[in-house]
Write a protein that binds this DNA or RNA. Structure first.
Length: 208
DNA sequence: AGGACGATTAACT
DNA sequence: GTTAATCGTCCTC
């Protein structure tokens, strides 16, 4: 069972709410781990200042500008990987960041990859945590999620937006914070509390 | 060539 | 509530 590529059109803002409840499965490393998504964010292309694609294609963001159905993985804060589902037509950057989910198969492997997690609900609560559970990273950047024999696949995608999907501002960004392009399963314990973005390190103060 | 900063997390007080 | 960890990417000389 797999998801047809055409279902990932036309762009991230349509796809993102429908990804709530979708199941992504990873066989990376020979262990099967599957996650049911509870929180995602839409990122558009050159018209979305919060998107990695805002300034046009670069080697890092090439996958975002490619055909739908591929995984866009990026490295951040010097230590974490996060993963997106590319969903726009070829040539138009559009992707959905996978922010949180519930592990539905392979919980024991997820705990092995996330030794800091003490409770099951913390395994994939947060984008870098989710990526760690499924072993998503450099090796899976560009993976074809619509290929039934690929190491990472979209196993199911609800045909319609489910009831109980809420939306609001995206987490951790410092521009375009007014766009309510985060979608989550209302009341789910794996969903992030909102946190505005901004500098995590003080800019040099001229008075020092 | 140099530097600022980040779609974050874990470990603190 | 705060802060350190840590390095690839991209912008600005």
């Amino acid at each position: 069972m797999f998801v047809d590529r055409a279902r990932l059109l036309p762009h991230s803002r349509i796809l993102a709410p429908r990804l709530i409840g979708a199941v992504l499965v990873s066989d990376v490393g020979g262990h099967e781990v599957a996650v049911r998504l509870t929180e995602v964010e839409a990122y558009e292309g050159t018209d979305d200042p919060a998107s990695h694609a805002f300034r046009g294609p670069t080697p890092r963001t090439a996958v975002m500008f490619g055909p739908p159905g591929h995984l866009y993985c990026y490295f951040t804060y010097g230590m974490h990987w996060c993963a997106n589902v590319v969903c726009g037509p070829d040539g138009a950057a559009s992707a959905v960041l996978l922010r949180a989910g519930t592990i539905v198969r392979g919980v024991e492997h997820a705990f092995a990859r996330r030794p800091a997690a003490r409770h099951e609900r913390d395994l994939a609560r947060g984008p870098a945590r989710l990526a760690t559970c499924l072993a998503l990273g450099r090796d899976t950047d560009g993976a074809d999620l619509c290929d039934p024999s690929a190491p990472v696949r979209l196993e199911s995608l609800p045909s319609r937006r489910r009831p109980g999907v809420a939306s609001g501002p995206r987490v951790g960004i410092s521009v375009a914070i007014e766009r309510p392009w985060r979608y989550w399963s209302a009341g789910d314990p794996t969903v992030s509390s909102y946190k505005a973005g901004g500098r995590t390190r003080r800019r040099a103060d001229p008075a020092d």
